[in-house]
Simulated scan of single mutants.
Amino acid sequence: MSPGTARETVAACQHHYVRTGPGGHTAIITAAVITVLAAAAGCSGGDAQGDGGQATATWQLAPGQGLQDDATTFTALVTRLGCNNGVTGQVNDPLVEESDDTVTITFTVSPGASREAVTCQGNEEVSYDVQLPAPLAGRILVDGACASTEAGQTVMCEPDGTRSAA
């Protein structure tokens, strides 16, 4: 995407901070001063970072998967949360946390945030085969980034980061 105006640049750079409210109205959560700086900087440093040079990523269940109670594998489509010239990067092994009701999968990608200016046309989806430690057994799959990072405030996590109900 090649934004034609400063307003389009801000919208592209800030796409992961936009949330649709009641009645379909859109509100930009970031402060006006940050929006102006993002436009001037060309989205430099727009990536959300996790630990050790890793960046936050969200995921969706790949289409065509009918997960049953006995499922122990599934394919996730992982996307870097922050701006990175359309590149998600290397998907790291996910953190898998199990409870009686949920299986929470949290992804990060490498490398972390770029120190150079980046564009923010949206990053590619990278396929990743997830191996569960135990069968799904009626538990709900949840995107851990939606529950524990700034991703929870984005449209990628609406309404609550739930990815499937087995």
Rank of each mutant, 00 (worst) to 15 (best):
Q153M: 13
A39P: 03
T102V: 10
A38K: 05
Q68N: 02
V36H: 11
V96L: 10
A11D: 06
T108Y: 10
G122C: 07
G4I: 11
G144L: 08
V126N: 02
P3W: 05
S127I: 07
A6M: 11
T88C: 07
G42D: 10
V109E: 02
A62L: 06
P159V: 05
T30S: 14
T154P: 05
A166C: 07
E150A: 15
A147Y: 00
H15R: 14
A38M: 13
D143P: 03
G138F: 04
A55M: 09
R19D: 15
E158F: 06
G4S: 08
P63C: 09
D47Q: 12
G52S: 14
Q121P: 10
T108F: 02
G53W: 08
L61Y: 04
C43Q: 12
V18K: 06
T5Y: 09
P159M: 01
E150C: 06
V126W: 07
V109H: 05
V130R: 02
P22D: 12
W59P: 01
L77S: 00
N123Q: 07
S99T: 13
A6R: 08
C157Y: 00
Q153A: 15
Q65N: 01
S110N: 03
I34T: 13
L95M: 10
V103W: 01
L81W: 12
S164W: 00
L77T: 03
G82C: 08
F74G: 00
T106C: 03
V33Y: 14
A40M: 14
G138M: 08
G45K: 05
N92D: 14
I105D: 04
G86W: 02
V118G: 02
V96T: 06
L37H: 15
D129V: 10
P111E: 10
V10K: 03
Q153I: 09
G21Q: 15
Q153R: 13
V87P: 03
G52N: 15
I34D: 12
E124G: 08
A134Y: 01
D143N: 04
